[in-house]
């Protein structure tokens, strides 16, 4: 069966994701920003589902929307909102911002033009019945070394955070 990525839902979810992404940076109240980010992440999870990647979608919800964002919110809830709302939200460095945006845009265009062959055609990459198993085979088989290095990096980051946060260990 063909993927269910019909145009309407793709554009609807993309618009939801992008719009809430914009809200994240334009809201002055940090809690509102965090909520918009959650909606954006959930939109991404739905997009993964449309790409027939149920495992990635599930993990996206559990880890990002349900785990990391709760911690974000946890910290933000303690911030004094009145004080944050009086502060200037954007700085005025238009020139640098423009240059950075142009560079990023150029990068996207370059990848799209040069690397077109890398993007898959329409079609299911992995059958959804065995999607989870195949992700596991790839992670622990072909890409085991990369995977372990990534986990080591994360471990270093965690220890670093603990060292920085604690006055006395």
């Amino acid at each position: 069966m063909a993927p269910v990525a019909t145009t309407f839902f793709f554009y609807f979810l993309s618009a939801l994701t992008v719009l809430s992404g914009v809200l994240v940076i334009t809201r002055k109240n940090a809690v509102h920003s965090a909520l918009a980010l959650i909606v954006s992440l959930l939109g991404q999870a739905a997009l993964y589902l449309m790409l027939y990647a149920p495992f990635v979608a599930g993990v996206q919800i559990i880890l990002y929307a349900g785990g990391i964002m709760v911690l974000f919110l946890f910290v933000i809830m303690l911030v004094s909102i009145e004080k944050a709302q009086k502060e200037e939200q954007f700085n005025q460095q238009w020139l640098v911002g423009l240059a950075a945006a142009l560079a990023l845009g150029a990068l996207f265009v370059l990848v799209y033009v040069k690397g077109r062959a890398l993007f898959p055609d329409r079609g299911i990459l992995m059958p959804e019945q065995s999607n989870t198993q195949q992700v596991a085979v790839l992670l622990y088989g072909n890409y085991m070394f990369t995977f372990e290095i990534a986990s080591l990096l994360l471990l270093v980051a965690i220890i670093g955070a603990v060292v920085m946060a604690k006055k006395r260990i």
């Binding site: 149920p54 599930g58 559990i62 709760v70």
Partner: peptide
Amino acid sequence: DVNIGLLIILGVTSLGVYGVAL
């Protein structure tokens, strides 16, 4: 019958925290 049923339950449960936190 979803083939990631358990993941869905875990995900939905973890989203339930927002009700309490908010």
